[in-house]
Design a protein around this nucleic acid. Structure first.
Lengths: 227, 227
DNA sequence: GGACCCCGTTAGGAATGCGTCAAGATCGGT
DNA sequence: ACCGATCTTGACGCATTCCTAACGGGGTCC
């Protein structure tokens, strides 16, 4: 499984140089030249690692970090020409995982990338099959079986929502996070999407769709999968 | 819930300087001057973070990292005078989380420590559950369970207030802070909002709402969550 | 004892959020 | 280019939550 890296820098030359190096090392590279493009790509592609230059034309670098962190725990390594100490501290406190000052050596960047990915890869070992008395969900196989053993067909969007809720089963998932992860950060306020799809999921999964037992609404906050 | 840091360095002066700085910032500091002492202290005390100098008299620094990593995932930040790139890469690949070259600025070290602790604390929801004899609060899952195990339903505003109080449990939280964090700075004087919502929280959580045991009023000052 | 001030409690209308339905728009495969 | 599946969008009635304004109780300082 290749590691997907999102590289964000406004300088196309640097972007190209990094892309060449990383591709040669077996990473799948995706690039963005602006903060907004970075947020879009982050939401759409769910990279395993983000390399972020702070000097972007449209958004402040720390704003990009904060926005990403509002719904994602992807490792973020900041690459910056600024040697100012306060930039470093702000970036780290906003949620960056590491901070390299340009110019840096490529071997060091690669080593820090390996360290960041190793850390984030560790705690992803939760049961892949979640069973209730009415249905069972296989997260690895992306399948849902009804009690009678028949497969329940879900559309891609339905599955995307269910997967997020079930991965954090028991926890409240904010509508903002669901919208950001599935439709992108720009759709944070389109809560009616969620209303429609939650209704469809309930019709397919709940024994009594009008009185949900598993897909719980927390008014004004979000949704919760009750195991 | 103070963070316990193990500082490993053979130079007693540096050790003292770091200890003073970290203690002043609220960390609980334990020190070791040799690799073996560091491994012993790591096993005995399970620190939340390790600051490790590579130039130890008895063991190679990477050996210490490898030994710790064989059984622990505690964050390790390497502090080293060696500017050689291969040392850095070896340390990171052996399992170090970060690498600072001496001399470094203390604010940067503190920021990197915060980042490392934040990362390692995030996936383990251990500290996010606050339990009393009458109910338990899961800050990560945004869930409150009564003693009988039933879920207590809170509205967004109720939850917002409870979250702030519980995050700073034991401490007095001023009404001004609650009001400006939840309703915005313009509502600093609307203390009647708090009276209403505190009453609702007590009705839902306290065994005897008229005689609060957990949600304590400090007249004229603010409120306090008494664990 | 009286005049405060601060707090707890209650309740109902206003505002916001949610479930539901159905009709276009869009996408993907043949 | 067609057709079915899927996604978007808007509208409506209902449920929940919020705001607000009372009233009463318990302190404290004159």
């Amino acid at each position: 499984m290749t590691t997907r890296v999102l590289v964000v820098d406004d300088d196309a030359h640097i972007l190209r140089a990094i892309r060449i190096h990383l591709s040669a090392c077996g990473y799948a590279v995706r690039t963005a030249q602006t903060g907004r493009a970075a947020l879009r790509a982050g939401a759409a592609e769910h990279p395993d690692l983000v390399l972020l230059d702070l000097g972007l034309p449209d958004l402040d670098g720390t704003a990009v970090i904060a926005e990403l962190r509002s719904w994602s725990t992807v490792p973020i390594i900041v690459l910056s020409a600024r040697t100012d100490g306060t930039d470093k501290i702000n970036a780290l406190d906003t949620g960056a995982d590491d901070y390299l000052t340009k110019p840096f050596s490529m071997p060091e960047l690669l080593a820090r990338m390996r360290a960041a990915v190793r850390r984030s890869a560790a705690p992803t070992d939760r049961d892949t099959v979640v069973a209730t008395t009415d249905f069972s969900i296989d997260l690895a196989a992306k399948k849902v079986l009804s009690r009678s053993g028949e497969q329940v067909h879900l559309t891609p969007t339905e599955w995307a929502i269910l997967e997020i809720l079930v991965r954090d089963r028991g926890a409240l998932v904010s509508q903002r996070r669901l919208l950001s992860e599935i439709w992108g950060p720009a759709y944070r306020t389109e809560t009616n999407y969620l209303r429609v799809y939650l209704a469809q999921l309930r019709r397919k999964l709940e024994p009594e769709p009008s009185r949900p037992r598993y897909l719980i609404t927390e008014s004004g906050m979000g949704y919760r999968f009750q195991g």
